[in-house]
């Protein structure tokens, strides 16, 4: 009986390892084409300015590096078959210097989204989902140590679900809620990697929150994943409407 259980566990472990071994990464770079608008200076109030001495924080709409690599682009696989349990690890948004960090992120449906407040200032955290079933909430969050972390969970996929602070009207963060784990957000140089994608044919989508608003259709490419890393690059042309 015990040996049978051990045998089954071994087979399951082997399957799990094999699954990971079968998975391959999709990587690439997002490049911005066209002149991005000049970012605007945030109208921080006196208390927020105190938390960022010497800084002149601006909006973060089109963060492109010198070579055009575009940050904060949400990249995901479309229509991945199967059911995926949400990870036990929460995604974390922090409030630092009266801004949400990160600005764009992804979470799996059912996954905990924890909002911290590292500022010595109170905020309110107000997610405003558009998809029915994802609850709108508005919660106060005092500065630490009185203020506790706030936890949110959304059960339906939604692109760029907005978190806002009404106390500081320039504070926004956008969480894309997916029904699978195959998504990521491009880094400062515009590069991205979606890890451990099972072999198969997919459509990969790159969506920028401003360039592709409000429908968020984005750019789509076909990709076939086998056993090695696939590269898919995107160019987002902001001179064209979505």
């Amino acid at each position: 009986m015990i040996s049978g259980a051990i045998r089954i566990s071994g087979i399951l472990l082997l399957c799990s390892l094999t699954w990971n071994a079968w998975g391959a990464d999709i990587t690439g770079t997002i490049t911005l084409k066209g002149e991005p608008p000049r970012e605007k200076v945030l109208p921080l109030d006196a208390m927020c300015r105190k938390t960022r001495p010497g800084e002149v924080p601006t909006t973060r709409f089109f963060l492109a590096d010198k070579s055009g690599g575009l940050a904060d682009v949400f990249v995901y696989l479309k229509s991945v078959p199967g059911e995926f349990e949400p990870p036990a690890t929460p995604v974390v948004i922090d409030q630092v210097g009266c801004e949400y960090v990160p600005y764009v992120l992804g979470a799996q449906k059912g996954q905990k989204i924890v909002v911290k407040n590292s500022d010595p200032i109170l905020h309110n955290v107000h997610p405003t989902p558009r998809v029915k079933g994802n609850p709108e909430m508005n919660l106060a969050q005092l500065p630490a140590p009185i203020g506790k972390d706030l936890t949110f969970v959304f059960d339906y996929p939604e692109m760029f679900l907005r978190f806002k602070c009404d106390v500081h009207r320039w504070m926004y963060a956008y969480v894309s809620v997916m029904d699978h784990p195959f998504f990521t957000v491009s880094g400062k140089d515009g590069s991205y990697t979606i890890k451990n994608v099972p072999p198969g044919d997919y459509e990969i989508v790159a969506v920028h929150r401003k360039a592709h608003a409000p429908r968020y259709v984005g750019l789509t490419e076909k990709v076939t994943v086998k056993d090695s890393t696939e590269t898919v690059d995107f160019t987002i042309d902001i001179t064209k409407a979505d």
Binding site: P37, E39, K40, L42, T59, K164, R169, Y172, K210
Partner: peptide, 9 residues
Amino acid sequence: RNLAADYRE
């Protein structure tokens, strides 16, 4: 509007 960089979003 998307290209206007308005912090009011």
